[in-house]
Amino acid sequence: MKLKRIHHIAVICSDYQKSKDFYVRILGLTPVQEVYRKERDSYKLDLAVDGLYQIELFSFPDPPARPSYPEAAGLRHIAFEVENIEEAVRDLAVHDVTVEDIRVDSLTGKKFTFFADPDGLPIELYER
């Protein structure tokens, strides 16, 4: 097997309209396709990240909560690369998104920080 790249990341949200607004309006991801699947009472929204990768945003009726802890086993977070982390943090502040203090990766010397989506999913910004 030879993996080529990440194809998509799937996110299940508890409030579809709120999460759609967050990922599209606040984070600026581009909607590619939105489908309502009546048999599952579920929306699926494909979002492009700078035209390269996709996030699949799903809604399901009453999804179970998934505890998220910084060092819990399993998928930890989604990370987005940005050119200027201070500018990105200011953009999020305009939308009242709480962002952790900017830190520096001791291995790479690059700046990074974390914030959360409407369901508490940890999202990292990592300066290029």
Rank of each mutant, 00 (worst) to 15 (best):
M1R: 11
M1V: 13
K2E: 14
K4V: 12
K4S: 15
K4Q: 13
R5S: 15
I6R: 05
H7M: 09
H7S: 14
H8N: 04
V11R: 05
I12C: 14
C13W: 02
S14E: 11
S14I: 04
S14H: 10
S14A: 12
D15G: 06
Y16S: 06
Q17T: 12
Q17W: 12
S19R: 02
S19I: 06
K20P: 05
D21F: 13
D21M: 10
D21Q: 12
F22V: 02
F22K: 00
Y23V: 01
R25P: 07
R25G: 09
R25V: 11
R25Y: 08
G28A: 01
P31T: 06
P31G: 03
V32P: 05
E34Y: 04
Y36Q: 06
Y36C: 06
R37I: 15
E39Y: 12
E39T: 13
D41M: 10
Y43Q: 02
K44G: 10
L45H: 00
L45E: 00
L45N: 00
D46L: 11
D46R: 09
L47T: 00
L47E: 01
A48F: 08
V49Y: 00
D50Y: 11
G51W: 03
G51S: 04
Q54C: 09
Q54G: 08
L57T: 00
L57W: 00
F58V: 01
F58E: 00
S59Q: 06
S59G: 07
F60T: 08
P61K: 10
D62W: 07
P63W: 05
P63V: 03
P63I: 05
A65M: 09
A65L: 11
R66G: 09
P67W: 08
P67Y: 11
P67A: 12
S68D: 11
P70Q: 08
E71H: 14
E71P: 04
A72I: 10
A73I: 14
A73T: 13
G74N: 04
R76D: 15
H77M: 04
A79I: 01
A79L: 02
A79M: 05
F80D: 01
E81I: 13
V82E: 02
E83C: 10
E83T: 15
E87K: 13
E87M: 10
A88G: 06
V89E: 05
D91E: 15
A93M: 09
A93P: 07
A93W: 09
A93K: 13
A93S: 12
V94M: 11
V94P: 08
V94Y: 12
H95F: 10
D96G: 08
V97A: 04
T98G: 11
V99D: 05
V99L: 02
E100P: 05
E100W: 07
I102D: 03
I102Q: 05
R103T: 09
V104I: 10
V104D: 06
V104P: 03
D105N: 11
S106F: 14
S106Q: 15
L107S: 15
L107R: 14
T108R: 06
T108V: 05
G109L: 06
G109K: 03
G109Y: 05
K110R: 14
F112W: 07
T113V: 07
T113S: 04
T113W: 01
F114C: 00
F114S: 04
F114Y: 07
F115K: 01
A116D: 08
A116G: 07
P118V: 01
P118Q: 01
L121I: 14
L121E: 03
L121D: 07
L121Y: 09
E124F: 01
L125Y: 01
R128H: 12
